[in-house]
Design a protein around this nucleic acid. Sequence first.
DNA 1: TCATGATGTGACCACTGGTCATTTTCTATG
DNA 2: CATAGAAAATGACCAGTGGTCACATCATGA
Lengths: 196, 196
Amino acid sequence: MSTRQQEKSRQTMEELMESAISLFASKGFTATSVAEITRYAGYAKGSFYRHWESKSQLFLQIVEHKMRSYRDERDRRIADARDLEEAMRIIWDFLETMVSDHEWARIFLEFTVHSMRNDDLCAEMRRSQYRLSEDIFAELVRPFVTTDYPAEKIGALNTALFEGFMVHNALETGVLELEDVREAAVALAVSKGMKQ
Amino acid sequence: MSTRQQEKSRQTMEELMESAISLFASKGFTATSVAEITRYAGYAKGSFYRHWESKSQLFLQIVEHKMRSYRDERDRRIADARDLEEAMRIIWDFLETMVSDHEWARIFLEFTVHSMRNDDLCAEMRRSQYRLSEDIFAELVRPFVTTDYPAEKIGALNTALFEGFMVHNALETGVLELEDVREAAVALAVSKGMKQ
DNA sequence: TCATGATGTGACCACTGGTCATTTTCTATG
DNA sequence: CATAGAAAATGACCAGTGGTCACATCATGA
């Protein structure tokens, strides 16, 4: 096996990815062009498509990578939760680290909307790797729900509140703090999912 | 005054607007090009820019028009509300008519995100005409809030939940019904804004 | 040394939002 | 009517987009 050549290829890919991450962060997904990504990394445009089949696919790969690192930590901690309220607070710690990466929350929202018009992308976005999907939320939370209210709905309501907060953040309205949303989300989940 | 010429100009503008509304509805904001709008209405591309300074400005005009018709009805009805819960339900009737225009909710979200990267557009989107903004919500709801919790935050939380639901809808996840979100929003507002 | 296949290139495609000099059409006045 | 001047409509043009592909370059195994 020609290790040297493969190594070079891997390095090129990483350079392009670094370039993309930094450009996405400063200009967003749509406003960053493939030509810019390659130019910034010192390659020609054609090289990009040797590594990814589209700009969207690169983006998904970046997100998947970001998500994977959060996920393990989160799943480990939630095993210790004693009730729904505790579980919710652990989940929100995790969401908090996502939003704290301010620019990325915005870009992520941008991409979510971008994917709305493409069935394949839409299907991928529904999968748990790319979003705190309703499914994964329900799974995390189900063991703690002590009412008849469906765990999926608790999850979906929570995700709605979170993603709505990202819109709010993106428009820089500045009325809500993360604390407010977190409190509201916990209160909502508790009122629906725990016997009073 | 050359009434005939002005009349013609007005008619052209209306034709272009109708064309745009129908194309936006079927393809979304980004995917609809200015050339398509004019072609569909039977004009050349240049004519578009005689009436609007950009595609975004046309969009804002369409939204403003849609909003105005809702608003009057809503303000009239809310005057009759007796408490926060009643006020919330009236507001959600209004939001419901917005989402029921299924395709438009999606396009509106698309445009919201599109405007994120443009300061001027962003400022316009914060204004009450274009969104159920935190301000206007606070104003509607303030007279009914009987706790210390700030009315702006109740408004912002409600808007977050609503706009998050639009994301949910756009991805066609299908777990939440409007009823669920409405109930959650009312419950949330009541728990924060009404003495128990 | 040289053939092979992987890696890198940039002109090219059909398209975008937006501009503007030019042509067409209307109308107010002599 | 004739015509000057204004208003409306046009479409070639610009710099850019995501994506393709025939071609050049280079590392490698024989």
